[in-house]
Design a protein around this nucleic acid. Structure first.
Ligand SMILES: Nc1ncnc2c1ncn2[C@@H]1O[C@H](COP(=O)(O)OP(=O)(O)OP(=O)(O)O)[C@@H](O)[C@H]1O
Length: 786
DNA sequence: CCATCCTGAATTTTT
DNA sequence: TTCAGGATGG
């Protein structure tokens, strides 16, 4: 028995059909947790072993870099397991560590290295490093292969500058953020500035088209692309250059796309071009070629970024045989859920049925009923956090085989993480927040990357301006303006002025010397970019720019932090060089930083509670999930409540959240929430009412935790649907030294002393991280923990 | 040229 | 509440 058939035993018959699919189009549709991603992963392995497909002919698109990494690891493991049997006649996990490593690295060289597996953005940036110089846009703009990738804040600053400085418009009327958003949407629909103007033939439309046009000019002048270009440029390039398309069409014989419901029109076009060579359907050739997509329309949650789940619904017509479900050979449905306990699954299924824009699906449970879903109503966001962290503590304590990494807290907006973080810190529980401020978005990191970008891509004026006087070198606004103006007058890049000593001497005034020194440093490194490894370039930048020195001089905690972060960046470069699958160049590293998301830092198996938005949680799973902030206006978000389609997307988001849970699900909301510093009353989310009541518990069926001897449980655990009176002092309890207690604002602690007796008791409690406090249990709300 | 204080806007979601 | 960007004064 070969291992392929062995691994097929990890699949149900429908999955197996998907996995064994060889040529032609195939759509796998199924609800959450039905093993779509697993099917896709196994199919890659199966193509290679059973059908002898060369890994370099496979293109696998995932939604996040993390998903790509995990998929590659999974495939690596599958092959290592297979080779362990064939070469050692032994199960992989029984081999000594040394042989495991040897096998893994062998598999890496043989299979993984050549596999093109990543997000649309990272895969296409790789393609562009090869071929972008063959591209020209409709205005003759062109790019070189050392292009920079501008992140969202670069893009927004550019738009702002164009609106206010170049076109002298009011940024009140043309808010740079929303203009940038509009441009981004246009690009994601494949519209050029001219196309956009045709679509919006009014004043505003004309202005935005004008900004868009200038924006593209500026990008090109900087030899830079934004995120949207990474998709759009390849599509245009493929459309205008048959040879280039031919090369990639020929290379990628088998294309696989995960989370297909969240692709947009340009991404779809790209897949379509690669798979069909842009030919009419009647000319398509499927010999040794396939398109395999998996998705779930009910989990489409990225329409704000122009994702369009009708692309998934249309797959059968676009690529498939278009036959109905009973006769089709180009679609497989998976109907068993392997992730969640039945209660959780039922709640999710019930909720999503409230959507009208959907096709009904079957999703059956394979796991037991599980515990009831627990619903909690808190007084405010602090009490909500308190509830969640208490629960986490007690579950962790009760179950020896549960660790912090099994918990996740999911919310609608990043801003909600704060109270949970505070409470986790207080309790000394390790946690990771995904999203919010990304590592590569920190000021010090962006500064240092600014140097690297200016070195890799001299045309990158944005980066040059960022670092020319960071740290301060006495190059002021006036000087910079002089230099920039000169560049503009001459129609050359800023760098061409900077790098010419004479020009700088003429224009630079008193700071000419500083400018020349700066330019020499950058120039020297530009010469070395081809010869030196990226880490060495970074090291030189750090030594010569004075950046770290300047931080040392500041000497405060914040500066210390920054220095450490810069050190982290150095490690990241080193790691990149070591793993350097493909493109070990500085430009390659810079691309990876621009495209990295915060999720990528969350390593499997690290024992820390995860906090993230519902959007970030897509595709993940956790034994215990807390879905928090279920309030009207927050979730569903008020910006989505007036439009039925948007409301349905919010509901899908809720569906995604619920279906992340494997064993336990806790839902919570607050009656009052701080917003911009003021307290606002909050109403429970309609989504709570859309769940089947009988599945929700508001108090524990088996009284495990939190029961006071005095009978009544703490106020918040009463009939949760009624309003609760929760500021009730603690009931009469016999306190003892050593008791573990929970305080409303200080969190968990342990009693170290008892003072007085009878009615006049006060207790000393030691709170981790807060020290010892003396508290009157009749005033404070104190709960005894089992 | 640079540090500090003050004002007003911001929170939907992200590759 | 937090933070970026502008005004102000050294
Ligand atoms: N045939 C199977 N037998 C047992 N467990 C399975 C099987 N297929 C998948 N699983 C498990 O079920 C869980 C969900 O699988 P997977 O992530 O592939 O589902 P999915 O459909 O991609 O989910 P989502 O829609 O949420 O992205 C995983 O833990 C996976 O290991």
């Amino acid at each position: 028995m070969t291992t392929t058939t062995d691994s097929l035993s990890h699949l149900n018959p429908h999955q197996r059909r998907a996995v064994e699919h060889f040529c032609g189009p195939l759509l796998v549709v199924a609800g959450a947790g039905s093993g779509k991603t697993r099917a896709l992963t196994y199919r890659i392995a199966n193509l290679i072993t059973e059908h002898k497909v060369n890994p370099e002919n496979i293109l696998a698109v995932t939604f996040t870099n993390k998903a790509a990494r995990e998929m590659k690891e999974r495939i690596q493991k599958l092959f290592a397991e297979q080779m362990a049997l064939s070469e050692y006649g032994e199960r992989y996990d029984l081999l000594p560590e040394y042989d495991q490593v040897k096998l893994r690295s062998k598999v890496y060289k043989l299979v993984i290295k050549d596999l093109w597996c990543g997000t649309f953005h990272s895969l296409l940036s790789r393609i562009l490093r090869f071929d972008i110089e063959k591209y020209q846009d409709e205005n003759g703009r062109a790019w070189k292969k050392n292009f920079s990738i501008f992140d969202e804040s670069d893009a927004q600053s550019l738009v702002k500058e164009i609106v206010t400085k170049q076109l002298n418009l009011s940024d009140k009327k043309f808010n740079p953020r929303s203009v940038r958003y509009t441009i981004s949407n246009a690009k994601n629909q494949g519209l050029s500035p001219k196309d956009y103007e045709k679509e919006e033939p009014n004043y505003k439309g004309r202005v935005i088209a004008e900004v868009y046009n200038c924006y593209q000019d500026r990008l090109a002048a900087n030899n830079a692309l934004d995120f949207d270009d990474l998709i759009l440029v390849p599509v245009r390039l493929f459309q205008q250059n048959e040879q280039v398309l031919g090369y990639w069409h020929n290379k990628f014989r088998h294309i696989l796309v995960d989370e297909y419901q969240d692709t947009n029109r340009t991404q779809y076009q790209l897949i379509s071009l690669l798979a069909t060579y842009g030919e009419q359907k009647s000319h398509w050739k499927w010999q040794n070629r396939s398109v395999f997509v998996v998705g779930d329309a009910d989990q489409s949650i990225y329409s704000f970024r122009m994702a369009d789940f009708t692309i998934l619904l249309d797959f059968q017509q676009d690529f498939g045989d278009g036959l109905d479900d009973d006769d089709t050979r180009s679609m497989v449905k998976l109907e068993e859920n392997y992730r969640s306990c039945e209660n959780i699954l039922q709640a999710a299924n019930h909720l999503i049925e409230n959507n009208t824009q959907r096709i009904d699906k079957v999703l059956k449970a394979t796991r037991g009923e599980g515990e009831q879903i627990f619903y909690f109503k808190a007084d405010d966001e602090v009490a909500e956090a308190n509830f969640v962290i208490n629960k986490i503590r007690s579950l962790e304590k009760e179950n020896p085989d549960i660790n912090w990494g099994n918990f996740s807290i999911l919310y609608r907006t990043n801003a909600q993480s704060r109270p949970f973080e505070d409470m986790l810190v207080r309790n000394g529980i390790p946690y990771t927040v995904v999203g919010g401020l990304k590592f590569y978005d920190r000021k010090e990191i962006k500064d240092v990357l600014g140097y690297l970008r200016a070195i890799a891509n001299p045309a990158d004026t944005v980066s040059l301006l960022r670092v020319i006087n960071t740290p301060r070198r006495g190059i002021g606004k006036a000087t910079i303006e002089n230099l920039t103006n000169a560049a503009q007058e001459l129609g050359v890049s800023l760098w061409e002025i900077l790098s010419d000593e004479t020009s700088v001497n003429t224009l630079g005034g008193r700071s000419a010397k500083s400018v020349n020194n700066f330019a020499k440093m950058i120039g020297r490194l530009q010469q070395e970019v081809e010869n030196l490894p990226a880490s060495e370039i970074l090291q030189t930048v750090l030594d010569e720019s004075g950046y770290v020195q300047d931080l040392h001089k500041q000497g405060n905690d914040e500066a210390e932090d920054r220095i450490r972060n810069v050190g982290e960046l150095y490690n990241a470069v080193r790691q990149y060089e070591e793993e350097a699958e493909q493109d070990a160049s500085l430009a390659g590293f810079l691309a990876s930083t621009a495209l990295s998301s915060d999720l990528d830092n969350v390593k499997e198996g690290q024992s820390a509670v995860s906090l993230m938005t519902l959007h970030s949680s897509k595709g993940l799973e956790f034994p215990v999930v807390f879905l928090v902030g279920l309030e009207q206006g927050l979730f569903p978000n008020y910006r989505s409540m007036n439009d039925p389609a948007s409301l349905e997307e919010e509901r899908r988001l809720c569906y995604v959240g619920i279906t992340r849970a494997q064993e336990r699900l806790f839902l919570s909301h607050a009656r009052e929430r701080r917003l911009y510093g003021t307290r606002e009353p909050a109403v429970r989310s309609q989504f709570l009412d859309e769940l089947p009541r009988e599945l929700l518990a508001t108090q524990y069926p088996r009284s495990v935790t939190y029961t006071n001897t005095g009978g009544r449980t703490s106020a918040s655990y009463n009939n949760g649907f009624e309003s609760t009176s929760s500021s009730k002092p603690t009931a009469n309890v016999n306190w003892q030294v050593g008791d573990k207690v929970m305080h409303k604002s200080f969190g968990a602690g342990e009693i170290t002393h008892i003072f007085g007796g009878g009615n006049k008791v006060s207790v000393a409690i030691k709170f981790p991280g807060l020290g010892q406090k003396i508290i009157d249990p009749r005033v404070a709300q104190l709960q005894k923990m089992e």
